[in-house]
Amino acid sequence: MVRAYLDKATRGTGLTRRLATRFDRPEATISDWIGAARPTRISQRREPPGVGAHPQAPT
């Protein structure tokens, strides 16, 4: 799927339709696959949640 995506992504609009045709799947399914494969902002964090977000006041 990834190789097909990269190959067809350079050919302009209609990417989801072309991939749906190639894999014989509905366009909604292809869109779901693409969405699941894309990194999210949460997965791109460099630090665990909460680290550096709010400095602790000295006690």
Rank of each mutant, 00 (worst) to 15 (best):
M1F: 10
M1A: 12
M1G: 10
V2M: 04
R3S: 11
R3W: 09
R3L: 12
R3P: 07
A4T: 08
A4D: 10
A4L: 14
A4Y: 09
A4S: 13
Y5P: 03
Y5H: 11
Y5E: 04
Y5V: 10
D7A: 09
D7L: 10
K8F: 10
K8I: 08
K8T: 06
A9C: 13
A9P: 04
A9H: 12
A9T: 07
A9Y: 12
T10M: 07
T10A: 13
T10R: 13
R11W: 08
G12P: 05
G12F: 05
G12D: 05
G12R: 05
G12A: 05
G14K: 00
G14M: 02
L15M: 02
L15T: 04
L15V: 04
T16D: 01
R17C: 02
R18P: 00
R18E: 06
R18M: 05
R18D: 04
L19D: 00
L19N: 03
L19P: 04
A20I: 05
A20L: 00
T21P: 01
T21C: 01
T21W: 02
R22L: 15
F23N: 01
F23S: 02
F23H: 04
D24A: 07
D24V: 07
D24P: 00
R25E: 11
R25C: 07
R25G: 00
R25A: 07
P26W: 00
P26F: 03
P26R: 00
E27F: 01
E27P: 02
A28W: 00
A28M: 03
T29W: 04
T29C: 03
I30W: 00
I30G: 01
S31M: 03
S31Y: 00
S31I: 02
D32F: 05
D32I: 09
W33Y: 12
W33H: 09
I34Y: 03
I34W: 01
G35H: 12
A36K: 15
A36M: 14
A37V: 11
A37K: 13
R38T: 14
R38K: 15
P39V: 08
P39N: 06
T40G: 15
T40F: 13
T40E: 08
R41H: 14
I42N: 12
S43C: 13
S43P: 08
S43W: 09
S43I: 09
Q44E: 15
R45G: 07
R45E: 10
R46K: 14
R46E: 10
R46W: 11
R46Q: 14
R46V: 12
R46D: 06
R46F: 12
R46C: 09
E47Q: 14
E47G: 05
P48L: 14
P48C: 03
P49C: 00
P49F: 08
P49T: 02
P49M: 04
G50Q: 09
G50F: 12
G50A: 07
G50D: 06
G50V: 12
G50H: 11
V51R: 13
V51L: 15
V51H: 11
V51T: 14
V51Y: 15
V51G: 01
V51S: 11
G52L: 08
A53K: 12
A53M: 13
H54K: 09
H54G: 02
H54E: 08
H54Y: 13
P55E: 05
Q56K: 14
Q56L: 14
A57F: 10
A57R: 14
A57Y: 09
A57W: 10
P58W: 07
P58C: 05
T59G: 07
T59C: 05
